[in-house]
């Protein structure tokens, strides 16, 4: 079957990839950029039946573009190529300080999906249940968007504009993600409540990176999946926590902050009520972790 289309290109480098995409956009040719294929091929498989053949879609395969699969440590920033896979995140010793992302990576699908699924793919797909995106948000990721017009950097928190809506222009590729390496003593946690323990889509997932000065919370960054139209930061929770003592937190106030940040729905995998309850519980779990008994 060739439901995905007719033309297939494998650019040698990022420049060629951008040029190819720019050309397709200019000519109005339906196309997709494909890396791991873990979303794109599934979507094509699930296409509803139609009496006419799907329009031929040109594919630009970036899974072997060298610049995209690299990563580099630059002081307290790590630049992750968009094509870095979850398996690479799990296995590369240099990325071990990004504990929250490493742990999230272990919870993405299972090894077959981790071996193919990429960080950029997770960002571009814009699923509300983006585990990797939640972790990247907690790491204050900045998205590097590249096109023939140049390159721009957009904080990941500003990248999503609504359900499956992003600031990415049609000719832009997610070339890299810059993440902030948390302080060595930072609290990092990942918790996924999924439909099962592997091969699962999140019902709720929470990534947290919290830095403290002694007892006081200096900096708190959270990313949560599956409780809003997009994977989202928890801005109210972060504001609530920053500057407070980790011990003796007002838990009712914390719950209220969570409620202000989430807008869960009922779907095939869970209920709004359960998700709201779990969202609160996971944030409380982080609070407990900051001040263990």
């Amino acid at each position: 079957m060739s439901a995905l289309g007719e033309s297939f290109f494998r650019p040698r480098d990022l420049g060629e990839a951008c040029a190819r995409v720019a050309d397709l956009v200019t000519r109005g040719v339906p196309h997709h950029v494909i890396a791991g294929g873990t979303d794109l091929v599934v979507e094509s498989h699930l296409r509803p039946p139609s009496t006419v053949a799907p329009p031929a879609t040109t594919l630009v395969d970036v899974s072997r573009v060298p610049e995209l699969v690299e990563f580099a440590v630059r002081g307290d920033t790590i630049r992750l190529g968009g094509g870095v896979t979850f398996l690479t995140v799990r296995r590369a010793p240099a990325l071990a300080p990004l504990r929250v992302l490493v742990e999230a990576g272990k919870d993405v699908g299972a090894i077959q999906i981790q071996a193919r699924g990429t960080l950029a793919g997770n960002v571009v797909t814009a699923s509300p249940a983006g585990d990797g995106v939640a972790a990247l948000m907690a790491l204050e990721a900045v998205v590097g968007l590249r096109s023939v017009r140049g390159e721009r950097a957009v904080p990941l928190r500003d990248y999503y504009q609504g359900y499956k809506k992003t600031v990415r222009a049609a000719d832009e590729l997610v070339a890299w993600l810059d993440v902030r390496v948390p302080a060595a003593d930072a609290f990092q946690s990942w918790r996924k409540v999924g439909t099962r323990l592997a091969q699962a889509i999140s019902k709720v997932a929470l990534a947290a990176v919290v830095e403290r000065d002694g007892e006081t919370i200096r900096r708190a960054r959270f990313g949560m999946a599956s409780v809003a139209p997009t994977t989202s930061p928890l801005a109210h929770v972060e504001r609530f926590l920053e500057g407070r003592a980790a011990r003796g937190l007002d838990l009712a106030g914390l719950d209220a902050a969570v409620d202000a940040d989430v807008s869960p729905i009922d779907d095939v995998r869970s209920t709004a009520e359960y998700r709201r309850h779990v969202a609160r519980a996971l944030v409380r779990e982080v609070a407990r972790g900051l001040a263990p008994k």
Binding site: T195, L197, A198, I201, R269
Partner: peptide
């Protein structure tokens, strides 16, 4: 779909 009809995996 097997994504949403959930049967146990080896870790479950």
């Amino acid at each position: 779909r097997m994504t949403n009809y959930i049967v146990p995996t080896s870790v479950d």
